[in-house]
Computed example of a mutant assay.
Amino acid sequence: RSLSAATLSVTSTLSKALVRLSQWLEQDFGDALNAGWQQIIPEPLAATSLSVVRSRVHSQDDYLRLQAATQLGQVNPQDSDAINTLLELLATSQEQWICQKAAESLGFIAPDHPQAAVSMQKQIKINDHPVAMIVSLRPLCEEIFAVRLEVRSVDNQTDLLGLKLVVSSGSDSIELPAEELDSYLELLLPEVRRGDQFSVQVAWPDTQVTEDFVV
Rank of each mutant, 00 (worst) to 15 (best):
E143H: 11
L18A: 05
G170W: 10
V135Q: 15
V215D: 14
D28I: 01
L3R: 13
Q157Y: 09
W24S: 04
Q96W: 13
W204C: 12
A69K: 04
F108M: 04
S105I: 02
G36E: 07
D128E: 11
S119I: 04
P77K: 02
P77F: 02
G73P: 15
L89N: 00
S136A: 01
A102C: 03
A35S: 07
S169H: 08
P177G: 13
L185V: 03
L3C: 11
R148Q: 09
S153M: 11
R1Y: 11
D196K: 05
D62P: 09
R148W: 05
L14H: 08
K122A: 08
I144T: 14
Q208C: 07
F198V: 03
A132F: 06
G195N: 10
V75S: 02
V57D: 08
Q96Y: 10
T48H: 01
C141W: 05
V131A: 03
G73D: 13
S22V: 06
E150C: 15
Q121A: 15
E175W: 05
E180R: 13
E43F: 09
S173R: 11
Q100F: 05
E95Y: 08
V57F: 10
N84G: 12
V19N: 09
N127L: 05
L165N: 06
V19A: 05
G36T: 00
S49I: 02
V167F: 02
L3A: 11
A102G: 06
S55A: 12
R56A: 09
